[in-house]
Amino acid sequence: MPTTVWLVSHAANAALRSGTFPRAPVAGDDAEEALDTRALEALAAWCERWHARLERGERNGEALRVLTSPAAIARASARAAGFTAATPGDALADTAFGAWQGKRIADLAHEAPEALVAWTRDPAFRPPGGESFDDVRARVSAWLDAIPDSEPDVVAFTHASVMRAAILHALGAPSSGFRSIEIAPLSVTALRRTQHGWAWLAAVD
């Protein structure tokens, strides 16, 4: 059976709910501190729905490869979801937001409205010192295409931008389509390798 990659968006924390751009991961971050009560409750419900299915995989019990973004919230989400042996990978990192790190979207709407609009519409736009969606798509696409045919199924806790990039890569669709893909916290997206590349699968219970 061909390799399936299950991408899971991390739980929502207070920063995400307030519309604040995340800061870059720092070595030694306490992953567990990234989760608040609401996030833990959401993860408990997610586990009831998804953990057994993903842990079992689709290859007759073959061990999964479990990965996370380097971000504390992604690592904490993986652990709380029962995947305690996950390995961080730079390809799964969130967009680098440069000078926008730690800023609220509402504040940027007043400080730099034209730049904020460009960020929501133009996949080539980079925040000062940061990455564009095209940059994220390039590294995510390279990571997917480097996964060998013999690779075990993969579960990866990551970010909405990474999941949008993976979906568009599988579809061979233009990056401008990122505006039309909504990824909720703890969403699950599946991609399967085929002889023609990657196929996007509808993830169902």
Score class of each variant (00 low, 15 high):
I147S: 13
S175M: 10
A166V: 03
V154N: 08
V140D: 06
S175C: 08
D94A: 13
S176D: 11
D94P: 03
A160T: 07
S161M: 11
G130C: 12
M163L: 14
G177I: 02
R104M: 11
A170N: 02
P148I: 12
P128S: 07
P127K: 08
K103P: 00
E111G: 04
E131C: 07
P152F: 08
S150R: 13
P128E: 04
L144R: 00
A99D: 15
P113R: 02
P113M: 05
A170P: 00
R164P: 04
R179H: 01
R126L: 09
T158P: 05
R126Y: 09
P123E: 04
G129S: 04
A166G: 04
W119M: 00
V136N: 04
L171Y: 08
A112E: 15
R121T: 15
P174T: 09
A112V: 13
A109W: 02
L186Q: 06
D153G: 06
W119E: 02
G102D: 02
R139Q: 09
A184M: 13
P148V: 10
D135P: 02
G172C: 13
L108C: 08
F157K: 00
V155E: 02
S180C: 11
E111Y: 06
S132F: 12
P174N: 10
T120K: 09
A142Y: 08
T158H: 11
A106F: 07
A142I: 07
S161C: 11
V136T: 15
P152E: 14
I183S: 05
A138C: 10
A160K: 02
R139C: 06
P152R: 10
L144E: 03
P113N: 06
G102T: 05
E111M: 12
A166M: 03
D149W: 13
S175N: 11
S150M: 11
S150G: 13
L186G: 01
T158Q: 10
P127E: 12
G172I: 11
E151R: 04
L171R: 12
L168G: 08
S132G: 09
